[in-house]
């Protein structure tokens, strides 16, 4: 059994790692990681915009985004993937690569989830911070950028890492629309071997497990550190903000 697994890895590690590349499109684990990273990197600013819209006093901004968030959160990701796969080419008439379809779907899906986390993070700060910033003459965006978001996002780092883990798992659904990721590579291997599905998919599961487990472990470390810092036990870093360098001395 262990023997079989080692033999499979020995034979197919490159396929599992990068897919058909350079003879075909990049695939395998590399593509899984790229897809996850790209979707979280795009979903994040998108989520901030969605959160702003949800918190807006203007109905025209608030309502459509609220509907989007509720629909997205209420529908299984697989449905969204299939919709984008069949609907987007129908609507646009363009032949969209499956990678792009999956990326867009993940961005919308994770964006909707993250936006709720961000919104909660902002609301949790209470109105006093915004009041103080406005009273000093900051505009709404200035207050967000220098006062609200640095705090809200910092507090949310653990949630965002968890979302990243979830995204990695979610990329597996790209399999149904033939995104050449790790899952896709594993099933190719399985199709070639035919007799060892258990071994092949055990390798697949273990790989996902190791990646997600490491990230979860990292999340826990970060979370503990943030909790400690909030309690004022450790002196915070001089620069907590991800966005501003307001505090930098020349």
């Amino acid at each position: 059994m262990i023997h079989d697994i080692i033999a499979i890895i020995d034979e197919y590690w490159l396929l599992l790692l990068i897919g058909q590349y350079p003879n075909g499109p990049l695939g395998g684990l590399a593509n899984t990681l790229i897809l996850s990273a790209l979707s979280i990197v795009i979903a994040f600013p998108f989520a901030i915009l969605l959160a702003f819209a949800r918190l807006s006093k203007y109905r025209v901004l608030r309502w459509p985004v609220t509907v989007l968030v509720y629909v997205t959160r209420g529908v299984p990701l697989l449905m969204l993937v299939l919709w984008s796969y069949f609907l987007v080419p129908l609507l646009t008439g363009a032949d969209v690569p499956s990678f792009l379809t999956m990326l867009t779907t993940l961005v919308v899906y994770q964006g909707a989830f993250l936006s709720e986390i961000i919104r909660a993070g902002i609301v949790a700060l209470g109105p006093g911070q915004m009041d103080a910033a406005r009273a000093l003459g900051h505009g709404w965006f200035g207050a967000m950028r220098y006062v609200i978001l640095p705090q809200a996002l910092y507090n949310m780092i653990p949630s965002m890492l968890s979302t990243f883990v979830a995204t990695i798992k979610d990329t597996t659904l790209g399999y149904v629309i033939n995104v050449p990721d790790l899952t896709f590579a594993a099933s190719q291997v399985n199709n070639q071997l035919l007799t060892q599905p258990f071994q092949v998919f055990l390798i697949l599961a273990l790989t996902y497990y190791v990646i997600c487990w490491s990230l979860t472990a990292l999340t826990n470390v970060v979370e503990r550190r943030i909790t400690r810092r909030r309690a004022g036990l450790a002196a915070p870093r001089r620069q907590l903000s991800l966005i501003t360098n307001a505090t930098e001395q020349p």
């Binding site: 006093g128 910033a133 009273a135 505009g139 705090q151 907590l240």
Partner: peptide, 29 residues
């Protein structure tokens, strides 16, 4: 914003910016 910046306001609950040191709280705006 310009008018507001000319009217200092002190709150019952302080509302300092917790992510900034004292000097940065004062210097930021």
């Amino acid at each position: 914003n310009r008018l507001r910046s000319r009217i200092g306001f002190v709150f019952q609950s302080f509302n300092l910016f917790p992510h900034l040191s004292a000097v940065d709280n004062v210097a930021m705006s």
